[in-house]
Amino acid sequence: MTAPLPASSPTPAAFAPRRRISMTVVGPILALILLAALGAWLNPNFLSAANITNVLARSAFIGIIAVGMTFVITAGGLDLSVGSMAAFIAGLMIMVMNAALPSMGVGIPIVLLGMGAALLAGLLAGLLNGLLITKLGIEAFIVTLGSMGIYRSLVTWLADGGTLSLDFQLRSFYQPIYYGGIFGVSWPIVVFGLVAILGEIVMRSTVFGRWCAAIGSNEQVAKYSSVKVARVRLATYVMLGLLVGLAVIMYVPRLGSASASTGLLWELEAIAAVIIGGTLLKGGFGRVWGTVVGVLILSLIGNILNLTDLVSPYLNGAIQGLIIVLAVILQREGKSGA
């Protein structure tokens, strides 16, 4: 179909592949390495297997959510409701499992039922956000700000202002999902790792990932290029909802409870991790591995501050804020110099 053009110039452009190490790539990794080195230097226990397992496992919830958030933000969206959504789904999952306990008894089926409920709730919650944003054309910020309040209230209401707790026996049975593992790696880390790897592949090498970046970069161009903009955007929110459900499946066995304070500020941590990782907040470019680095940076800061007596605990928030801003500045400098 393509007709060769009569060349008006005999010399086509010389394409010398030019690769340069850019700070946008090195920045977050460098920050992570520096933090790890600092931790190891300040406390020898930092590099112990137990501590590394702790940090990775506790990063898993926000990490799994942040991978989904990377797609939403890359496609030019935003979701503020994930923290509340996680709390609500956790509450729902606990109630479903407790309610089914008398009839099903403790066993694998009831755990599977709980997991199914969590994933279904996540899917529906994501679908609701996505439909309001794509079909009714309401700003993502407003839609998810609204659903954030709704889910937070719902979980408070479900728990009657207190805490929803999983039946003790059920929790003991389900606990290995958080504390157990395979080949010495605990399940949350395994799941987080799989989600991250799959996410990176989807973002980097599938039509869907490319479409997300195209929509976030310029919605009009995507539309004129026959990309089903609304459908792709909807899919990002549904995927995020599902991943919130998955994170909850990992979260519930840890403490076996959900309350109004579950998942508080997770949305901001997830968004911060995405941005530290080099994804553009306005959309158009995203990378999942960066998000993983971002999540680890955030977790490590807390861990190091707990392991050392470097600063007053009152200043923990300030240190975190400082490192977030520094990580982003490091990248910006790279950009202007590139």
């Binding site: 506790r58 403490l255 707990n306 392991l307 605990p313």
Partner: peptide, 23 residues
């Protein structure tokens, strides 16, 4: 040995305690 804020929150207390145990 040490004092750290757990913010009257289960999750935060879990993480802080983990880190105390490592330390």
């Amino acid at each position: 040995l040490a004092m750290e804020h757990g913010n009257w929150n289960r999750d935060k207390a879990f993480e802080v305690t983990q880190d105390f145990l490592s330390k």
